[in-house]
């Protein structure tokens, strides 16, 4: 058991360092510090320009929470597309490794990364826009951050599977990332969306989690957001399950077409 856990932790860390250009101090600073700050500042300035200075915190908080998608969507999708790019995908698929464990280890590190990103975003929001967490329910906020990091990785798994048969699945990552930015209550409430898009919003991860996190910042108790968090987890689990099923399906498709090496 201890050996298996050690192997799991080791392979998780090694694949993270192997696959991501941000797994160096300078790379991490560029991707995980400079880029998020830019996103937060951009949307806050845009929002303030459009709606007035009173809403700055709303935009800053939403964009801080959405940073988890940077890891959960881009990170998870890139784990497969980068394997393809480096020519290691056939080695992975030709090994007797357990697909579920491999998949989990790849997502796990991105979940942790997502949590760190959101915490960093909140620190930036506190410094630049005066986010005051003294009245917030911090344990609940922490739980919300963990939950949205897991659920966005679940969605990432679904689209990451496309990397088995698609050369440019990172384009999909961009579409999904910006889709979440529009639909999940990051820069404006979901209730302002057209009805059809509200249905889409509630079928995506992040939507309920961001609502719960906003409530936690306002000092809500666990009981007040338990339903939102349960719904968020359920949506994430559905996407993760679909992601695993799609991975196995596309693995078979890739075997039929010899698509693992197309890059």
């Amino acid at each position: 058991m201890t050996q298996s856990l050690a192997a799991f932790a080791r392979s998780t860390w090694l694949q993270y360092v192997a696959l991501f250009q941000w797994a160096t101090p300078l790379g991490y600073f560029a991707y995980k510090v400079v880029l998020p700050v830019t996103q937060i500042v951009f949307f806050v300035q845009l929002g303030v320009f459009a709606t007035g200075p009173g809403n700055a915190l709303y935009f800053a908080l939403g964009n801080s929470l959405q940073l988890t998608a940077n890891s959960g969507i881009f990170g998870v999708i890139a784990t497969v597309s980068n394997e393809r790019q480096y020519g290691t995908l056939p080695l992975l698929l030709g090994s007797p490794a357990n697909r579920l464990l491999t998949f989990m280890s790849r997502s796990f590190v991105n979940v942790l990364d997502g949590i760190v990103s959101v915490v960093f975003g909140l620190v930036v929001t506190a410094i630049l826009y005066g986010l005051d967490l003294r009245t917030a329910n911090l344990p609940l906020l922490g739980l919300c951050i963990v939950v949205i990091s897991i659920t966005t990785a679940g969605l990432g798994l679904l689209f990451g599977s496309l990397g088995l048969v698609m050369r440019d699945s990172i384009i999909v990552a961009n579409v999904v990332y910006y889709g979440l930015l529009i639909l999940c209550g990051i820069n404006f409430p979901v209730s302002r969306l057209p009805d059809a898009l509200q249905v889409v919003a509630y079928s995506l991860p992040l939507t309920r989690g961001v609502m719960a996190a906003r409530e936690a910042v306002a000092g809500a108790a666990f009981g007040q957001v338990a339903g939102l968090l349960a719904g968020e987890l359920l949506v994430g689990a559905v996407y993760a399950g679909l992601g695993y099923a799609l991975f196995r399906l596309l693995e078979g498709w890739a075997r039929r077409g010899g698509l693992q090496e197309a890059y």
Binding site: Q3, L14, G87, L91, S95, A97
Partner: peptide, 24 residues
């Protein structure tokens, strides 16, 4: 292609050894 260039040769082998579930 087919190697993790950012890893050392040793770490490449260790990673694949884990994939093949070879005892440490």
């Amino acid at each position: 292609r087919g190697l993790y260039w950012r890893l050392s040769g040793y770490d490449n082998l260790r990673y694949f050894a884990d994939l093949y579930r070879i005892p440490p």
